[in-house]
Design a protein around this nucleic acid. Structure first.
Lengths: 349, 349
DNA sequence: TTGAAAGCGCTAACAT
DNA sequence: ATGTTAGCGCTTTCAA
């Protein structure tokens, strides 16, 4: 006789065989349903003999534990939601590769911790959604993306201080966050430029309130220069619909201004790529006349002309820290700096 | 009196307030739990008055419907699993941006259909896993990635013919699949090169059995040449640990061979980028002496020197078709060709 | 229109 | 070492 009191409609009706459950396995194996549950999850209390038999039956019946049902009782989902914020109105080929890299790294780190990654791209207001945890679709949340999408970050802002949420790239400076060691990165860039024999260094990029990452890079850059009695001068920034365009415009402006310079530290690779274009157009040779360093480690930089020397963060560690911070749930290690290193290519001599 | 027979331990003990459930809302609103369920999901049978009251109470209590519990009964998960296959042993900065783009597009398409995307990167054997559907973690599955990771595809091969699975990039040719319209792409490339005044065209890339995509591009390329009474000659391929390196080596070999050529169609942008490097090293000017066209629409191509003209698929549609095919579950529209178009940059005149 | 009760498929506390 | 029996939190007949 089948399990009592819980038999499904079709249970006694062989015609109606809906999906196979642990009860089916239990019946066929001649044990109780709970024994099936234990056997299959490796409970040491179950005899190897029993376990083997149950496993066999399960396999014959094509039975698989229903993950959601299994977790319903425990309350945990075993998944971590990842929100990627890109600029509004761009398509997927235009998303900053940096964020794709970070996403990959986060997914891998989640998997390493035994978690699934539920990812969503939220660039447009109609896709804003963050109730993953409340709706028990995930245990924690990671938000990452471009700081230029203010509306999206504003939407998610209330979450940033929760200890089951970690983030990368918010334009706000008043909450815990994971980020590159921008200070060190800026310093490395300046030192490398000086070492390459360049003396008139300028910083390309915006350093306003909403670009905390860039500002930190600038600060590190200034500090390094100050150490050798030099000054960084005013950063040069320009408007543009993409980072590449901003970089190009900024360097166009810089050249037009007549200000002397022989070394450029661009706050991100995309802007550096634009800078390279502007320099080429003006027939200024890199690295002979001007040295250029970017930040991010983009693959595109490797194919630029000349290949772009850049400061790259440890992506693997970045993913790990984001996941750990989101999972910690107790505020542990939740504000982190990811080490960076210089990737030598050919835009500085 | 609260709901009978279902009260949790702490239910009567205010100290032990575990998470708030629909029973809590029901009690406080003075209705039955099932009424809460109905009201919150917009069942028209419920009075607006009742619904409003329930919504209010729910909000006060911070109640949210538990998504998994809600779906347990229905059997559907509302999520679609996405597996991304990269080459083994590479880190996340080295994953072909093409696949990242596709991933983004797939996630967006899933969201548009009301599905969540559960993504996992599976490049190493220890991460191989595909039982998402059996374990009820997802309703369908999408597998995409590089055809060069044979072991991974081999692992997933049995799934490729299921009608709740769709894929992009497998090295096998005997199953339903979504892919670029490679034939047309190859033709467009040849036509554009001819139109640019180049006459001696060669195809760079492998066309063996496991590279069905490349072979189709080559076929389209040949067809277009045949149409004007020309022949494509032998494709040139070379070994290398990355596509870029393969392209570079192939063109090095081509130059060394003494074979004349003035137009190159590279089977993918990564190889085209390598080709550009080899050409530059040999001081062959592009597009003046040799025209080059790639395939994929990579952003890196836009920053190469000269910017790479390429054939790009409609990413948005690709994501949509992959999702639709996986969701169809009935074999509908499950074998598709994504339209491609030429992106004019500066590597052909 | 709403309530009562029976599950969805599984885990876990409590027995034996 | 295994069986019993409650649930996990919600949806959905079936009544009223």
């Amino acid at each position: 006789m089948p399990h009592h009191g819980r038999s499904r409609q079709g249970m006694t009706d062989p015609v109606h065989k809906s999906r196979v459950t642990s009860f089916d396995v239990a019946e066929k194996a001649g044990v109780n349903q709970s024994t099936v549950s234990r056997a299959l999850k490796g409970d040491p209390a179950i005899t190897e003999k029993t376990r083997t038999r149950i496993q066999l039956v399960a396999q014959q019946l094509g039975y698989r534990v229903d993950d959601r049902a299994a977790r319903l009782r425990g309350g945990k989902t075993g998944t971590i939601a990842v929100i990627v914020i890109a600029r509004s109105g761009v398509d997927f080929t235009e998303i900053n590769p940096f964020h794709y890299n970070l996403l990959g790294s986060v997914c891998a780190a989640a998997a390493a911790r035994g978690y699934q990654a539920l990812v969503s791209f939220q660039s447009e207001p109609e896709s804003y959604y963050s109730d993953y945890i409340e709706s028990r679709q995930a245990d924690s949340l990671i938000i990452l993306g471009t700081s230029t999408n203010d509306a999206a970050w504003q939407f998610h802002r209330p979450l940033l201080d929760r200890n089951d949420v970690s983030s990368w790239g918010s334009p706000f400076g008043d909450h815990r966050r994971i980020a590159s060691d921008n200070l060190t990165g800026g310093r490395l860039a300046a030192e490398r430029l000086l070492q390459g024999g360049y003396h008139d260094l300028v910083f390309i990029g915006g350093v306003d309130d909403r670009q905390t990452q860039f500002r930190d890079r600038y600060t590190g850059f200034c500090n390094a220069l100050a150490n050798v009695g030099k000054s960084a001068g005013t950063p040069v920034d320009a408007a543009g619909s993409t980072r590449v365009e901003q970089g190009r415009n900024a360097v166009d402006d810089l050249i037009a201004s007549g200000r002397t310079f022989d070394g450029l530290f661009c706050c991100c690779d995309a802007m550096a790529l634009g800078a390279l274009q502007a320099l080429a157009k003006a027939e200024i040779r890199v690295p002979e006349q001007v040295g250029v360093i970017g930040f991010d480690g983009l693959t595109s930089g490797a194919h630029a002309s000349p290949p772009l020397t850049t400061i790259e963060p440890d992506f693997k560690l970045a993913g790990t820290m984001l996941v750990d911070a989101a999972l910690a749930g107790d505020g542990t290690n939740t504000d982190g700096r990811i080490p960076v290193h210089i990737v030598e290519r050919a835009s500085v001599s």
